[in-house]
Design a binder for these strands. Structure first.
Lengths: 199, 199
DNA sequence: ACAGTATTGTATATACTGTTCCTTAGAGCT
DNA sequence: AGCTCTAAGGAACAGTATATACAATACTGT
């Protein structure tokens, strides 16, 4: 490996944004075909019709490009979690399943490219913290939860992501509503017995 | 990448077995220190005190060596699943948690080396199929499950692996027994309502 | 002790990365 | 429109990694 990189120069030109987008799309397209770590920079720039030096003008390396694509997924996820804040559901699962179905091209690429680990771990953390916070608010004052809230948060987030992966692997034959119903039927009794909260 | 490999020659000599073991241990040791994909073959053979050609006499490439180590994990897992076959528990969760704690050096290496994705996916499949089979046996004849058995299998396996990862990330402060209790308290109500089976 | 083979060390072809330097093309401003 | 500035293109380069080939050597099992 040649010398260490300093940082990536931020560009704001219209052309630059177009180039960045093309490179991102090229990576996603390639990840639908093969594993992320077998993809070379050459393949990416060929697919995007972009010069080699242009790639390195925008990104530190291949990993940097991936990270930026992954960050997009997480940002979108957070945006979808903010809705439905008034109900007493601890997690906007239906909204999430719908979001997954819509953006499943990128997510599918991440899964098939074997770069899903990072995404899932980030999702798991975000979701479990969200659930934990909601549970703390819904808990009747003075009445403690039988199981600690972090573990219940992990449980709920884990079930959601497990079902999502199972759904995705089989090509998402069920509707989002159907999957949400499965999710709630499985998760609700456990949460009720563990915390006393009815979701 | 140079030409394609044909296959790896199987060796049975005592020396060979020793060499293979040394190489496997070297990889595991290195994975405790850095990410799998940043480890070079040179580092592995240096650590194992083994010549370069010897490495390629035993394994197709670095990936091949990893796969064999991973397979070991899964084989051990299966062995631990066979016990406790007479009880009416759908999954020997306590035995599994104990096994995880014992072999956590290797598993920790896989996690820190970012090679856990493969292992977890394989585990998820094995465990969910196991649960599915057990449920089918325990289901009262003539009385169908409300939710299909595959989805309940995925659910149970997913919760077990989620809790395991949560446990591992924080350095396994709880005992195996404690974790198993959490697991059962969270998963039992959902399985009861979804299938009618009491575990 | 001997035969057979596992192992070693080195050399080699191939591939990928990230940088450099120079040229070309086009966006944005007056 | 014309001018300027900079993004993009393209080729070449050093550095490093992979996987193979081959001859020499060390060791095991009988």
């Amino acid at each position: 490996m040649p010398g260490p990189q300093e940082r990536k120069p931020p560009r704001n030109d219209r052309r630059s944004r177009r180039t960045r987008r093309m490179l991102g799309e090229a990576l996603v397209a390639l990840m639908l075909e093969k594993r992320y770590d077998t993809i070379t920079v050459q393949e990416i720039i060929d697919r995007a019709n972009v010069g080699r030096s242009t790639f390195y003008a925008h990104f530190l390396d291949k990993e940097d490009l991936l990270q930026i694509e992954v960050a997009q997924v997480v940002v979108n996820l957070d945006r979808h979690m903010e809705v439905d804040d008034s109900s007493n559901r601890i997690i906007p699962s239906l909204a999430l399943f719908r979001h997954f179905r819509e953006s499943h091209a990128l997510i599918q690429a991440l899964v098939r490219g074997r770069a899903m680990e990072t995404v899932l771990r980030t999702m798991q953390t975000h979701l479990s913290l969200h659930v934990e916070a909601r549970l703390a608010r819904l808990l009747p004052p003075g009445k403690a939860s039988a199981l600690s809230l972090p573990i219940v948060g992990q449980y709920v987030a884990g079930v959601l992501l497990t079902l999502f992966q199972w759904w995705l692997e089989r090509g998402m034959p069920e509707s989002s509503e159907q999957l949400d119903e499965y999710f709630l039927r499985l998760v609700r009794p456990g949460v009720r017995e563990a915390t006393g909260v009815e979701i």
